[in-house]
Amino acid sequence: MAATTKSNSELFLNGILNENPIFRLALSMCPAVGLTTTMTNGLLLGIAVTFVQVFSSCTIALIKDYIHPRIRIPTYTFTIATWVTVIDMVLAAYVPGAYKAMGIFVKLIVAFAIITMRLETFACKNNFVKSFWDGLGMGLGFMFGMMAIGFVRELLGMGTLFGYKVLGFRTLLFFVLPAAGFFCVGLMMAIFNYVEFKLKQKRR
């Protein structure tokens, strides 16, 4: 794949809709199933992923010419791990309140498939600015996906949104359990696919 010809705004929207990491690329399914019991989780993890994705994409875009093609993967892993550690340390030092809530998630980001995949397919072939917009779009797309699943699971499972009581009674416990994560992800993928199918039909 050669350098992309898409404009910056197209790249940004691409990550959120056409190539949404969770619903279209089906990457990073572990957090999408395991950590989406509440919307707050989705939001916090989304913010952290966005930062790591943007920083890693930009770093790789800058140093892509110096990376030996055979050792791309170790270099990506180093880059991601470095940024995750940096963010972890900065959060712990300057925003202890937020760190208390998202500390356990931040360290998990090292192993997220979506970040390595974006570095491999996009950042190592495109320039700094384009990689920034792609990273931002992908990060926010991930956040959107996580929050959408979190919305359904928190509302139906606990009757709350962002921890505030909405329904006023304790609802279906099933939605809090990990298995429900699979159902929610599957259903939402189906909705995404259906919408795309309809749009294509219209165009014809």
Partner: peptide, 20 residues
Amino acid sequence: GLIITCFLAGLVMGGVFTIT
């Protein structure tokens, strides 16, 4: 290549650690 990568990563992380 790998040594330089490790060295740079170490510098960044070490620096942030000292500051924070």
